[in-house]
Simulated assay, not measured.
Amino acid sequence: MKRLLARLVASNLNAARTYSSRANRKLAIAEFGDPKAVLKLQNGSVGSPKEDEILIQMLIASINPADINTVQGTYPIKPTLPGVPGHEGVGEVLEVGPNASGVKPGDLVIPNIENFGSWEQFKLVKSEAVTKVPPNVPLVEVCGISSNTSTAYRMLRDFASLAPGDAVIQNGANSAAGQNVIQLCKAWNLKSINIVRNRPDIDRLKEHLTSLGSDVVLTEEELRATKMFKNGEMVAPKLALNCVGGKNAMEVLRHLAPKGVMVTYGGMSREPVMIPTSLLIFKDVAIRGFWMTRWTRENRDSESRKSMLNELFNLMIDGKLKAPAHRLIPLDSFTEAIDSMTNVKGFAGVKFLIDFRL
């Protein structure tokens, strides 16, 4: 009788553990609007996978500007409501359905679709909705690989024919994408000229970007005054990357080499990109735009995307591609990230990541 009772107690404990491990927490929205008003922390539960589904435990999820825009309803790709925001993250496969393919329990995976809903502790998704990643890849680094890291990679690869020793100039250089650009330039033996807004801790920021591999870091004011291109201290850049717009973008464009290319992938100043006619005529510069989501949609299962991800995985594993300055926060501290990212004064300084292990 004692043995039977012990087995029953153990069985009940195991059942309780299984049940509690499937208790689920998530950030959800029922309508688009001010993130501070519409984002709600919710509790629930999740079952086991069926058919081609897999059960994932999210480990880390990014909070990107695109996520904020999605919650606001201004991003071009919108989730079905009610829904869970979050485009990026990394998770561990816990269970697989009988018809699931490509992954097994214990594998690390990242989203392979938009509007993945990564701000959720446990997720039931189809196996085709994820991409398997190497088991030894750093979690914080791989968490942002699909947006900022891939954006930096594609802009450097797809718009200008760059060889070792060539130069790239960018504004918003302390952004997550900008820090990836610096490190990829370093890895590929390209020179990078990096423009940032002036701020009280500018020396510390310059030191940080230099430690990542930047060749030159200038404030916007210093860029307007510099003579390093005219006197030959730095080769004129063949490629300019713009995420700011306005006068800053025009100043960056002014320093491009003849037949150079400027790629715009953001507009943080909310001011239009102005292009002097003289640069179009006498320098024959080209103006392009880039949206990583569109590229991924057109190349989701292509060899070029697989090759890109594998190269980035290896750079991360080798320590040559590090995550931008960041803070790991528990899910229930999400308001801290929202407050910082929606601060009109800017200078957030760090990227916020939800760490479901906290």
Rank of each mutant, 00 (worst) to 15 (best):
K2D: 11
R3T: 10
A6R: 10
R7V: 14
V9F: 13
N14R: 13
A16W: 12
R17L: 14
R22K: 15
R22D: 10
L27Y: 05
P35G: 10
I56F: 10
Q57R: 15
A66D: 02
T70Y: 01
G73E: 08
I77P: 02
I77W: 06
P82W: 01
H87M: 13
V93F: 01
V96Q: 03
G97E: 12
G97Q: 07
N99L: 12
G106M: 07
V109I: 15
P134Q: 14
P135G: 12
P135F: 12
V140P: 00
E141K: 01
C143H: 03
G144R: 00
P164H: 13
V168K: 01
S175N: 02
Q179H: 05
N189K: 14
L190A: 06
R199S: 02
R199K: 03
D201C: 05
V216M: 05
E222C: 00
A225N: 13
T226L: 09
M234A: 07
L239F: 09
L239T: 02
M250V: 12
E251S: 15
K259Q: 10
S269I: 03
M274I: 12
S278M: 08
S278E: 12
L279Y: 11
A286L: 09
F290W: 12
R294N: 15
W295F: 07
T296L: 11
R297H: 15
N299D: 08
R300P: 01
L315W: 04
A323F: 11
I329F: 07
F334A: 01
S340V: 06
V344F: 05
F347C: 03
G349W: 04
V350G: 07
V350H: 10
L353H: 01
